[in-house]
Amino acid sequence: MKSLTIGEKISRFLINWFFLTIVWIAFTTTFATQELLTGIFVTALISFFTIPLFTCCTLKILAPKRVFYMLYYLIVFTRELIKSNLDVARRVLTPSLPINPGIVEFKSNLKTDYSKMVLANSITLTPGTLSIDIIGDTFYIHWIDVKTTDPEKAYTEIAETFEKILLKIFD
């Protein structure tokens, strides 16, 4: 693991602290003073010890533009999720099982591991696709109904909508 500068450390610590405090409040579901104080203390402790681990993002992620895109991403994602489920339902319920599975690859422009992970998870949850592996920049996707084996076309088919937004959020 490469060593971090002090600034990065503080930034990570703060963002981690912030998110964990939100998670704590969600766990306790109360704003009572005692709970909040305990929560702030505990989360500070945990985020201090997990600085080298929690590498998702720095404070930059809280910029209003990024938050807006996050919300937008959520909407797009929900739409895709529902679509995918209808798709699965159709396939499962059709007696003849209309599938044509295969594995395709494409290259992604994302830089960090976290954004890749989010993209892979989104792909898994969207119609007919399941991410099998990421090696470097290359995604390997199991596709239940292969329309094309060409990486470029597969990219536009599968990942483009998500990746555009993710690039705006993470990079």
Partner: peptide, 26 residues
């Protein structure tokens, strides 16, 4: 493990520790 599991584990690890702490504090 692969990138996905690895970074997922890193991301979820603090939350799991917090969950454990929440369970035993409460």
């Amino acid at each position: 493990a692969s990138t996905i599991v690895g970074s997922g584990a890193k991301l979820i690890f603090p939350a799991i520790i917090l969950l454990g702490a929440y369970v035993f504090i409460h």
